[in-house]
Structure formats: structure tokens, C-alpha cells
Write a protein that binds this DNA or RNA. Structure first.
Length: 230
DNA sequence: TGCCAGGCCGGGT
DNA sequence: ACCCGGCATGGC
């Protein structure tokens, strides 16, 4: 069908209906949690494979230093920065990742987020991906939640939920899943924002690793009806 | 107590 | 182009 060896991804015009079911159940999520776009970027890096509650501790640590800006953090000694990042796990890795991002921002955009977000989306995405420590999900989270670009974010919960509802193979690559949403929804950053936040909300409750079939999800039967037989 | 969390990288097939 | 081990803390 696709000719690329990943046949098990379906085109889903009802994807918007899925969104409305989620919104009706869970309501507005008010994402991204964080104050301002620099905190959004920090959170996107710090939450990699990590519980958000741990990230919050680190963000509180950083706020207390009154150095919560690109230039402020760049002035901190590495050991001090590492100590502040400790609660969010992988703290040595994340210290390096953060330093890589700060260096990129300084060298390419004079340390200015305003300047960075003036770049066209496709170019900025490629540049972010070239930063060591920023992968596809983190780059897209930055673009969507800090830059308000219409870029759909795919994460582990999204993958599991799509698989559970037979909308995609569990092995489908990131870009393919992203395209599934972007091709079947209006190109609207606010919609992508709310949709992804809702997927995480439902995923946290019903679709953790040990229950990848989302067996307890109350939306399951409803959604299967709306999709018809797979 | 063990398992889990809003990934990513580097090295090996 | 995949597959895998490593990275680390805090909560249930």
C-alpha cells in the first residue's frame, strides 16, 4: 500500500472524532505546563523518559537560582547545574544536553529565543535535531509548545494508543505517525497542542507499559464503534 | 519491593 | 536500517 514496508498504518478521517471524544471526557489540559517558552524547552529536554513530577522539582530548583534564562544558566558552573538537575534523573546526560542546546542557541541565534523562533519551521526542526540530546519528540515539543508551530508531537503514549485502536503498527516510524495526524486534521497548532496533551492524559491513566492494550480505557468500545471493524 | 516514567545516543549487527 | 544497553531519580 505505502510501498515502504509499513502497511499497517491506516488513513483515518475520523481522527478528529477521536479528538472530540477525548476532549469531552477529559476537558482542556492547558499545556505545556511551565512558565514561558524557555521553561517549556527545559521541560521538553528534562522529561525525556522521566516522570513530570521529577521535572517539576528541577524547575523549582532552577527558579530559586533566579538564573532561569539561557544566559543565566550558561553562567552556572557545570557541577552546580548538574546538582540542580539531579531530581529529574539522567542528570549528567541532561546537563550535557542542556549545555549543547545553550551553545547552539548562542552560536546560531545570539542566545535569543525570539530570534530562534523567527526561523522557518522546517529549517529550525533540522537544526534542533542536529543538537546532541534533542531527538524528534523533543524537537517537535519545542516547535509546537514553545514556538506554536503546527507540528504534531508523537510520544510513547500516542504510539500505544494508536496501536491499541489498530490505527498503526507498533513499529511504525515517528514521521509516519506524525503524518497520520497532520494529514487527517486541520493544520492548527492549538488543535495539535490540545490533542497531544489529551493523548498523554488518557495514556497516563490507562495505557502504561504493563497495560499496552489500554484494556481499562473507557473510550475503547466507543472508539471502536466509531471506527468500524479494523 | 520492583517497576515505571511525556527519549536519546552510540555501538553493534 | 534496526536492535540494544546505558543513562538515574522519585513515587506508587
Amino acid at each position: 500500500m505505502s510501498g515502504h514496508g509499513y502497511p499497517a498504518v491506516f488513513s483515518v478521517p475520523q481522527l478528529y472524532h477521536f479528538y472530540r471524544c477525548l476532549f469531552a471526557h477529559f476537558g482542556a489540559q492547558h499545556w505545556w505546563p511551565g512558565r514561558g517558552r524557555f521553561e517549556v524547552i527545559l521541560g521538553a529536554i528534562l522529561t525525556q523518559n522521566t516522570n513530570w513530577a521529577n521535572v517539576e522539582k528541577t524547575l523549582r530548583n532552577l527558579r530559586r537560582t533566579s538564573a532561569l534564562s539561557p544566559r543565566g544558566l550558561a553562567r552556572l558552573p557545570r557541577t552546580e547545574l548538574a546538582r540542580l538537575l539531579r531530581p529529574s534523573g539522567y542528570f549528567r546526560q541532561k546537563t550535557r544536553k542542556l549545555e549543547h542546546f545553550l551553545r547552539f542557541l548562542r552560536q546560531c541565534y545570539q542566545g535569543s529565543l525570539s530570534q530562534m523562533f523567527r526561523a522557518p519551521t522546517a529549517r529550525l526542526r533540522a537544526e534542533l535535531l542536529a543538537v546532541n540530546g534533542i531527538g524528534e519528540e523533543t524537537a517537535d515539543s519545542i516547535l509546537l509548545y514553545a514556538g506554536r508551530r503546527p507540528v504534531f508531537v508523537i510520544d510513547a503514549y500516542t504510539r500505544r494508543i494508536l496501536h491499541r485502536h489498530r490505527l498503526a503498527s507498533s513499529a511504525a516510524p515517528y514521521r509516519r505517525l506524525q503524518k497520520l495526524f497532520e494529514d487527517n486534521l486541520p493544520r492548527d497548532a492549538q488543535l495539535y497542542n490540545e490533542y497531544h496533551a489529551l493523548l498523554v492524559a488518557v495514556g497516563k491513566r490507562y495505557c502504561h507499559r504493563r497495560a499496552p492494550d489500554c484494556a481499562a480505557c473507557p473510550l475503547g468500545p466507543e472508539l471502536e464503534r466509531s471506527y468500524g471493524p479494523a
